[in-house]
């Protein structure tokens, strides 16, 4: 296998190197990629959508179908992780609780009465280790700032680098940071797997629903200009607002799918204490 691999990469590498000379030079303004389609986007984005950030306008308006199905792909990936890994919650032989004020660990065998899950008794795993207070408090301090930044990235995607995908990933990263610094049980208690699943479906629904609303108003799918009478603006501004609605849907879907995949991957589907 090593020999086949080396021969393949030698062959492919030589082919790619030979044909790299036919490609345009780095930064060539007259390369085929920048002469056919992209000048239209650059020159008409303001007149068509009133969005100065071309990446956002191309992402959510000119290529709206592409982005919608990319969001669906992300949702499908989340579902695939869930169906591959998630195990049904089974009755365990013995479970462990920790009495938080005293730090005493209690082991409860089969048929024993488990205490109510409360602030005093914390459900733990056999391999539980105390968490470092410095890491815990630092990440807890950082979380709101990360989330505010993520909301800024989503909301300001029209005017600066940003948008639904980036903001959604940052939002998800904040929750994953919480899950790493505390543990998975605490995180699942705050954002349950069900709500992550519902939010990811809701994100895709917002996107597709905006498109369907345009159809109901008598225009093409994802033609946000049709939303003008609903939003009380002209057609161009309606496109700008439509892009924002769609980006919020994307952010919701991406955030919750990232959280959902992390829940299932980090605990191999058991959703116990995790990493």
């Amino acid at each position: 296998m090593k020999l086949i691999g080396k021969m393949t990469i030698l062959l492919c590498g030589i082919l790619l190197i030979v044909f790299a000379n036919k490609f345009p030079e780095f930064g060539d303004p007259h390369s085929p990629a920048s002469t056919h389609l992209s000048p239209y986007y650059i020159e008409h984005t303001m007149a068509d959508t009133a969005v100065p950030n071309m990446v956002t306008s191309v992402l959510a308006d000119y290529r709206g179908y592409d982005t919608m199905f990319e969001t669906t792909v992300i949702l499908t990936a989340g579902l695939a992780c869930f169906f591959l890994l998630r195990l049904p919650e089974e009755e365990e032989k013995e479970i462990y609780f920790r009495h938080v004020p005293t730090g005493v660990t209690i082991r409860i065998e089969e048929c024993g009465a488990a205490p109510e899950d409360s602030d005093v008794f914390q459900r733990i795993d056999a391999q539980w280790v105390p968490r470092d207070i410095i890491i815990r408090s630092t990440s807890r301090l950082l979380m709101p700032f990360i989330q505010i930044f993520a909301l800024y990235v989503v909301a300001h995607g029209h005017h600066s680098p940003g948008g639904g995908f980036q903001g959604g990933v940052i939002l998800g990263a904040a929750v994953i940071l919480f899950a790493i610094s505390h543990n998975l049980r605490t995180t699942v208690a705050k954002i349950s797997e069900t709500s992550a699943a519902i939010m990811s479906a809701a994100g895709v629904f917002i996107y597709a629903g905006t498109g369907a609303l345009c159809v109901m108003l008598g225009e093409n799918f994802l033609n946000y200009g049709a939303l003008a009478p609903l939003l009380g603006t002209d057609r161009v501004m309606a496109r700008s607002h439509g892009i924002l609605i769609v980006e919020i849907g994307v952010a919701l879907a991406v955030m919750s799918v990232m959280i959902w995949i992390y829940y299932n991957l980090s605990s191999a589907g058991k959703q116990d204490e995790g990493l």
Partner: peptide, 26 residues
């Protein structure tokens, strides 16, 4: 202005790449 189209394509590809990496690890 540089060509926005490759950036749009790769923007979605990066996030989809992370999601499919999750499936591969699963």
């Amino acid at each position: 202005y540089i060509n926005p189209l490759p950036h749009v394509l790769m923007l979605t590809a990066i996030v989809v790449g992370v999601a499919t990496l999750g499936v591969a690890l699963a």
